[in-house]
Design a protein around this nucleic acid. Structure first.
Length: 293
DNA sequence: CGGATTGTTCTTCC
DNA sequence: CGGAAGAACAATCC
């Protein structure tokens, strides 16, 4: 469930680990993972370099140094269960198993049965794209196709376009719930189920509330809470709820700071009331009945 | 074993 | 016609 903070964490890591390194080998194990364009993908990346990695919402755009037939970008989306894990060159015996206990830091193998794509770089470092549910993709795109994908997103909640004026505008004339509003990528880019629930708790607003019925104070709180929570989550390298791991295969620590998400049945960290879980906008939705109205 | 899972897109409805 | 809600879809786990 990588959302903005998780994708941003991975993006920053990958810039350090693989940007501008020559890609010497591309192994596509599942053509579906590259939008069925296996030949095109292999041809595009082999011998190429990732010049820059951008992020828009939950989508990454890998800008390649050498365009091939007008294709200069790979659109990378992890959807629910995608992982991008980098492993440095293995020197000698790395995975020693003794007495049933692995002596390495990881408790999983690379590659594994969920590995869809493997990129090998000039220094023999490898980037593994794993995806248990296989909904994610790495899709070759022309500059125009990449631009078209970008156009669909609303402002970045951590960018300067995310203004109080804009936030007020998206409430105007809407009859939907706060949950649906905040999940809509065309209005605000990058929020998913975790951070919508957390932002609603932070603002003291129940996710199923109709947007038109929020007080100006509640709207203002929500506006201030969104960037605050996202920044804090990035600081702690995202949230691991189930499958998310960063580029080193490590968990995100923001899980320790969640106030409501996945805490149904547990007591509220602010007031002690039992956290409830319902369904709003078709999604599992968590809230504190006391702190949120 | 079928219901739950989530981001996104498609379909239907009002 | 447009917005909103719900279904569909991807695949797997429990």
């Amino acid at each position: 469930m990588p959302e903005l903070p998780e994708v941003e964490t991975i993006r920053r890591d990958l810039v350090r680990k693989v940007a501008n390194k020559k890609i010497v080998h591309v192994d596509v194990r599942q053509a579906k993972a590259v939008a069925g364009m296996k030949t095109k993908f292999v041809h595009l990346l082999t011998g190429n370099r990732i010049r820059a990695i951008e992020r828009r919402g939950k989508l990454m755009l890998w800008r390649l140094a050498l365009p091939r037939q007008g294709i200069d970008t790979a659109l990378v989306h992890l959807k629910m269960t995608g992982q991008l894990i980098y492993e440095k060159k293995r020197d000698g015996i790395v995975e020693v198993v003794a007495g049933g206990h692995r002596l390495t830091e990881r408790d999983f193998d690379l590659p594994n049965s969920h590995t869809q794509v493997i990129l090998t770089f000039g220094d023999m470092g490898k980037l593994f794209f794993n995806d248990l549910r296989r909904f994610g993709y790495m899709k070759p795109a022309t500059a125009a196709q990449a631009e078209a994908a970008l156009d669909k997103f609303g402002p970045e909640p951590l960018g300067k376009d995310f203004t109080w004026q804009y936030f007020q505008e998206i409430f105007f004339g809407k009859k939907t719930s706060v949950k649906a509003l905040l999940l809509n990528q065309e209005l605000i880019a990058g929020l998913g189920n975790i951070y919508v629930d957390e932002a609603c708790f932070c603002a003291g607003v129940r996710p199923e509330r109709r947007v038109g019925l929020l007080t100006p104070t509640e709207r203002r709180k929500l506006f201030l809470c969104i960037p605050r929570i996202l920044k804090n989550a990035i600081k702690h390298r995202g949230t691991t709820f189930k499958d998310y791991l960063d580029s080193e295969g490590k968990r995100g620590n923001y899980s320790d700071f969640l106030m409501v998400f996945d805490r149904d049945g547990q007591s509220c960290r602010r007031c002690g009331t039992v956290i409830k879980k319902t369904r709003a906008a078709g999604r599992g939705t968590h809230f504190c009945p006391t702190c949120q109205r």
